[in-house]
Design a protein around this nucleic acid. Sequence first.
DNA 1: TTGTATGCGTTATCAC
DNA 2: GTGATAACGCATACAA
Lengths: 358, 358
Amino acid sequence: MNKGNKKNVTFNDIASYTGFSKTTISRYFNNPDSLTPKNQEIIRRALDKLNYHENKVARILARGKTEFVGIIVPNLYLHYFSEMLNQILSTYNEFGFKYLVFVGDGDPEHEKKYLEELMAYQIEGLIVMSHTLPSSELASLPIPVVSIEREDDFISSVNCDNYAGARMAVSLLHSHQCDVYIHVNTPTPETIPAYNRILGFRDYCRENDLRHEIIFLDGDVSFTAISPAVEKLLDELENRYPGQKKGLFFSDDTRAHAFLNRLVRKYNTLPDSYRLVGFDNSPISRDSIYPISTVDQQIPLIAREAVTMLVSQIEEAKKGTARSRETIRHETVPAVLYQRDTTELYGSGNSCASGLPS
Amino acid sequence: MNKGNKKNVTFNDIASYTGFSKTTISRYFNNPDSLTPKNQEIIRRALDKLNYHENKVARILARGKTEFVGIIVPNLYLHYFSEMLNQILSTYNEFGFKYLVFVGDGDPEHEKKYLEELMAYQIEGLIVMSHTLPSSELASLPIPVVSIEREDDFISSVNCDNYAGARMAVSLLHSHQCDVYIHVNTPTPETIPAYNRILGFRDYCRENDLRHEIIFLDGDVSFTAISPAVEKLLDELENRYPGQKKGLFFSDDTRAHAFLNRLVRKYNTLPDSYRLVGFDNSPISRDSIYPISTVDQQIPLIAREAVTMLVSQIEEAKKGTARSRETIRHETVPAVLYQRDTTELYGSGNSCASGLPS
DNA sequence: TTGTATGCGTTATCAC
DNA sequence: GTGATAACGCATACAA
């Protein structure tokens, strides 16, 4: 009854109803054992008689802790980000932090606004996946900040072991004795962790005296940009390395998948002259017409580590002085290689890929 | 300087620094024109001299409006949900509402906890995509609730026009003169909007005297469940309708895509004896080896409509009495058919699909 | 145009 | 074990 238009029931109401003081009601919630069991029962009854619902906003004001964490994610259409967000949000059950999520659009001014809004809501920590704002700026925030797979010179971070991941990928191609090794990437600043995929590829090739090349495609992720770019790539490779066995390491599964499709459209099968490895272990790599070998970033581990790191920094900040905030940590989560059909040893027919990590 | 360990600057500090009262400082933010330009300037200077940052939590307590909206989404690995979430979050720039997001896990007890937590944070409205809690329960909340594509008997909702979408899909297949029409779905309660896809399919087939069948697969969305199910489906269809032209309407692109892949693996091309239409217009339908015709739900429109509806109900609730809350609205957003390669008229070779809606 | 007083719903500090 | 009172930071009648 009387739902909606009446003011909320408060400690005051419970207090006057039960004859206790507000303080006692508060204690019922925060330190129940300090009340006699009998009085606990009285209050419990009053609470549901009056249909009380707690107001955590008031509690925030009084205690100074919001249990809010801000998240800025560049987009949600890439599986990588939506899954990362998913994993982060799922930590609620363990840590109790509530997440205020903003999706960036690449505009630094907008993201600054988001940041202000987040700070205005007294977030206790921030997880940044967007690349838009430099870490120097983020580091000046008065709260702990943890980044994931972005430039992290001045802030804590947790990233995938891109370097090792790339090496595993080429190494797998290498085991197939290709004539030439090609890494397909998009223009990547040296400052972001993903740049290590290029380094890993290059180092491995050099160490093993492999003929290799790095090709950069347009960074646009839209289908209308990827599709023709990949088509052109195929033409070029056929011209440049006719009759040779080509080992391709793509920096993302999306492009690997698009390339594979062109290949199969052209040859009606996965030709022996191509070996493919992608990156991300996104669903498309598994669900592709020929399941694509790929490098898994272990998103759940990364998310978990990021939240854990952030929480511990938040707790440190509670007790510590300003000095303790200087501690910047960079964590790396191992990558895992998934061998699938695009690097099968025995032909390329209807092989039965396990989909299990190597 | 002195970052972190010092208390925040408040209106009190600004007031004593400038000689004004707290009220005037407050007015500077909420009704600046009521101050003389000169005094505005004085305060502006003080604000950034003292490095003031607003505290919206205190403002909430004083004004009673949080500008928080709760979201409960069943998961984020389906593109449909992550894109919907993306579109909802993007309305921040227009409406200013902040979103507190929870990912459900199918456990009603958990979702009730999420709900309590959301209410404790004084959310002004709720958007529900999860199916876990019955709408009767959600309707008892003292705030406006809008659902998207779920059982909505007792709450407002915005849904895709599943019925028309399904009819468009079969109609497209019909234009290809198939011998038999098959709708592939998963077990679907009659209470959820998606059930209309079944009705739309059945009605169209009956009205046009089409030989048809509805096949239900396991509802599990995992690859390990879908892949063998789809393989089995193909075998069955080949046995049951040998040599006949089959028009398949899938209730989701994921299964349509999996089926297409089996088909191409078997025939090395998209055989003329099959016509496929999916549902959702998810990226995979476009990026598939043969782009799949599908029904687009217009996620951006649905998201926008849901938020708009919620906001207007929130505003009504402000002024109106409890009675105004009784108003339940059910909005339907039109579906759009995308014709692509799996329903091409002229053979099934390397046709150049436009990817544009019909 | 500006100030005073009070309230928002809770927690924290003392008392008793 | 329990209660009175003062924060927490801001908004809003009501005065002036």
